[in-house]
Design a protein around this nucleic acid. Sequence first.
DNA 1: CCTTGTGTTCTCCG
DNA 2: CCGGAGAACACAAG
Length: 293
Amino acid sequence: MPELPEVETIKQDLRKKIINKKIVEIEVLNKKTIHGNKQAFLRILKGNKIKSIERVGKLIIFELKDGNNFLFVHLKMTGQLVYKKGKKVVAGGHSEEWGKKPQIINELASFDKYARVIITFEDNAKLYFNDMRVFGYMKTGDKTARVEIIKGFGVEPFTKGFTLNNFANIFKNRKTSLKAILLNQKLIAGIGNIYADEICFRAGVRPDKKASNLSKQDLNKLYEAIKYIFKKAIENRGTTFNNYVDSDGNKGGFTKYLKVYGRGGEACKKCKKILKKIRLVGRGTVFCSYCQR
DNA sequence: CCTTGTGTTCTCCG
DNA sequence: CCGGAGAACACAAG
């Protein structure tokens, strides 16, 4: 489940790999992956170049060199963007792979059968959009579309707008649970089910606590926890629980730091009591009823 | 049955 | 009856 740290990792890596490379071919292996007009999608991308890459919440936005269009990519639950270097044509006509690590080839082999779109660049490098469950999408749009899409996202952690005051205001006059607010992309961009639980644990607050019942101290702890957890997760290149891999096909390193996600019924790492697992906002939710109040 | 991100649809409340 | 909030559902495959 790629959330902010995973998507941020992919963005940073792809910036080093595909900027200013001409797109020479696009293979759409599953047309459901392309949202909007497929012909327009192909026409806009073919022959174009990627000028820059940004991330908004869990969405990756590729700015195209033509000066007006953008490629939007959402990985949803099982999407991957995996980059493979091109083949170097050597004397005699045969080719050899550049710089592939054998253990990565094996790791990726199981996901390549879920390739939905393959973009080929002028140097024969390929960007695979793999997506087992076909929830993710790719679509193109212009500047207006980009502005409209970004409008739909709430405050982005690590931006100037993410102040304690702004954060606390989100909770005012809301009747829903803390976790519902953390997961709502229109309010705060980038938090998914894994990090929501980790943030609540670090802050020492129950995820099912009602927004109106959160104290000033709760809000301060949650605010700091978001920044801390996301910073740590990005430094460790994200979390792999089921099938997240970065653009090299490697797993994230934050998985070993998870304190609650996926640990229902196990001992709390802080107090050793058994972690509770409940269903909240339709999502599996793990917390410690002793450490979180 | 379970897993989850998000768009859509339904329901409730004032 | 309207608007908004929040809850519930739909989707997909293993």
